[in-house]
Design a protein around this nucleic acid. Structure first.
Lengths: 219, 219
DNA sequence: ACAATAGTGTCTGTGAGACAGTATCGA
DNA sequence: TCGATACTGTCTCACAGACACTATTGT
């Protein structure tokens, strides 16, 4: 880093953009806001915050999640950093995208206080439509959707969409939604079996056989 | 993004740090420089460049690779963005880390012109030793090493360490180095058979059976 | 009894792991 | 012929896919 003298390079703004995903009504959804100002007035956008000088990227992401959802202690991970020169027409902004995964119950809990112009949107529908989103946010969403589909195959992310205790049909549905295809019950259960343990509880009230609740097992 | 008025947030410097990996003498190596100035004078560091205001992150990475190795058109990908507040003791710098993977022949080609204080270092040795590196660069290296080990299992990255035409023993060695374990010849060949096609060439001069050269097949 | 969904048993094919064997070079 | 490395054949076992079967609730 020749001389490492940054003064000859102009500094820039660094923002964290948030992709808060959840599964609602058997669909993958994302929390978006409707912009109230130009540029991209009235367009859908990812919520985001600027990174403060005394704040790490993770801290900024956490702060943003708190501001938008009221939640802390939810799962999130850095996704990718977007640095096209003109991604924001006004000024140079580097955007570090973070994904957060939330069981929908946690969001419902604070639904009443939801910002009036923020809400959950169907991801597949949005991506399939020609609807424009602000900035490069549609590209970011597309990339995040792709990563989710990938990671569900070799990690545990699907579990972050369900609560502490969950039924296997519910968890399977999450897998199916993320993978975009249906799975065989028996095979799914065999695959998941080593990662979970039974609870003593079962569902009730449905007009069919009740479903047992499980929780994650360490290991 | 409340108001989207960035003026209340101070701007910061954004740098790209480069992890140029290669395989030399059956070892995973990385290109590092020895710092000539404080802070961390004489410590090993990742080469890096600041991101210019009219330059994307990828362009900055490419420029940095060119400056350090003289090479362009080599494989690279964004790794992760590091944003600890005090990662650089002098000022706030956000570092977007990029990995580049190069067959060692390409680096040898320009070995004569190598910067006097830059060179290839054995990655495992470095990580196992207590030797300090500048800034948080040892953490970055550790993470990159981990990612390489992971990605080799479900992607094609290993191919970037060999040239256009390569023998299977050579490619297998790359896999073994990245995975950190030895593999069975027969199984390895069966696994990559669908990804390659024969050439008409074989090695010669060795005091044993010659080895056929292969090249990648599309698909 | 029936509709509906939860949950299990088992056959099959595919692919990774293990290992023994054969092939082809230089000396 | 021998040492060395390239390359192949084949057995086994774990696991994913497919599908048929049983179980338990409410009405």
């Amino acid at each position: 880093m020749k001389g490492y003298d940054s003064s000859i390079y102009e500094k820039m703004s660094v923002a964290v953009d948030l992709l808060v995903f959840t599964v609602e009504d058997d669909r993958l959804k994302i929390l978006l806001i409707e912009r109230s100002e130009d540029p991209f007035k009235n367009a859908l956008a990812l919520p985001g915050v600027f990174v403060g000088v005394n704040e790490t990227l993770d801290e900024a992401a956490q702060r943003g999640i708190k501001e938008e959802t009221g939640l802390k202690d939810i799962y999130f991970e850095q996704l990718y950093t977007f640095g096209e020169v003109k991604r924001d027409p006004r000024m140079r902004i580097i955007s570090v995208a973070y994904m957060a995964l939330v069981p929908v119950e946690k969001l419902d809990y604070i639904a009443g206080e939801r910002t009036v112009n923020a809400g959950l949107f169907d991801v597949e529908e949005l991506l399939a439509s020609k609807k424009k989103m602000a900035f490069d946010h549609k590209d970011i969403l597309k990339y995040a959707r792709w990563r989710l589909a990938n990671k569900v195959e070799y990690t545990d992310i699907a579990f972050h969409f369900v609560g502490e205790e969950f039924t296997l049909p519910a968890l399977q549905k999450v897998y199916e939604i993320l993978l975009g295809k249906s799975l065989y019950k028996a095979n799914f259960r065999k695959k998941i079996a080593p990662m979970i343990e039974e609870t003593e509880f079962v569902t009730s009230g449905d007009k069919h056989r009740p479903s047992r609740f499980y929780r994650r097992k360490e290991g």
